[in-house]
Design a protein around this nucleic acid. Structure first.
Length: 270
DNA sequence: AAGACCATCAACCGCCGGAGT
DNA sequence: CACTCCGGCGGTTGATGGTCT
């Protein structure tokens, strides 16, 4: 991208919580045109925010496919495992939790999981002191963490490999699989159904809009400005590549038995 | 009922690395 | 090579709502 001094005028940027009108402006703009250069988004969208703020709002709140609400047990354990291995690499952790943002995971960690881990470790050390003289198997109070450690090894291998590979960080397949996970029933069509649970007002609008325009925002980060069918093909290619490499085992909710088909610009997930 | 305290979450800030000029 | 801009990341803050005393 070229260097166009978009914000040379140093306009006063609004801060604080986003109003519904601002959300609408940003959402409509990105769904229609994609985000392109973030610093130009607020200008084009008619917002008095800076580009960073728009980016954050889109990624953490407006982006289609976001899962909102409580973390599942499985998600919790995944976070614990990955945090144990990766540390505070929230963005990397979030790549393994489709629909969750790094910010969300980070908040969840600080508000809940951190305490849980601290408590578990405290109990573990307490038990170690208590049973120090015994060489026999002791009951592990932090079984959750221990269990995750072994389970984590598998994920760790995947993490290392995925970092080395040329795979896109966020797969379109994840979004589809997320949708699959969210719904107990099979999904008829992304363009037709109200599949996303929370935040439905926007999600519905977004889904509707997406059946009419090329995908915008982060989901086409790797293939930006590519029309939906081409993007889909490229994602499918990556999915196939993953199957060949055995990565697919690590894709939560990814159902190989599922079939995809294309109808104009609408993506069907059968 | 009211103030203090706590938990949660959205958003901001500062830094860093990559890339174009 | 230095400079500038941008996007991304992690740490932190501030607002808000809930619970406790």
């Amino acid at each position: 991208m070229g260097f166009q001094p978009m914000e040379k005028g140093k306009a006063k940027h609004k801060k604080g919580l986003w109003s519904p009108e601002e959300d609408n402006k940003l959402r409509n703009h990105i769904l229609k045109h994609g985000h392109g250069c973030w610093s130009s988004v607020p200008i084009k969208a008619g917002l008095q925010r800076n580009g960073k703020s728009c980016r954050l709002r889109w990624i953490n709140y407006l982006r289609p496919g976001l899962k909102r609400g409580k973390f599942s047990k499985q998600e919790e354990e995944t976070i614990l495992t990955l945090h144990d291995m990766l540390g505070n690499k929230w963005s990397q952790i979030s790549q393994h939790l489709p629909g969750r943002t790094d910010n969300e995971i980070k908040n969840y960690w600080h508000s809940y999981l951190k305490k849980r881990v601290a408590k578990a470790k405290e109990m573990e050390s307490h038990n170690q002191i208590k049973y120090a003289s015994s060489s026999s198997d002791t009951i592990d109070s932090s079984n959750s963490i221990q269990k995750l450690a072994t389970q984590g090894q598998q994920i760790y291998n995947f993490t290392k490999e995925s970092c080395q590979s040329s795979l896109p960080k966020l797969l379109f397949a994840e979004w589809l699989s997320l949708d699959h996970v969210n719904s107990a029933n099979s999904v008829e069509s992304l363009g037709l159904r109200n599949g996303f649970d929370h935040n439905s007002t926007f999600q519905e609008a977004a889904i509707h809009d997406m059946s009419e325009v090329p995908f915008g925002g982060d989901y086409n980060r790797c293939v930006s400005n590519i029309p939906a069918p081409e993007m889909f093909n490229s994602q499918l290619k990556y999915a196939n590549q993953m199957v060949e490499n055995g990565y697919i085992h690590c894709m939560p909710g990814f159902d190989l038995s599922s079939n995809f088909s294309m109808s104009n610009d609408a993506i069907m997930y059968i």
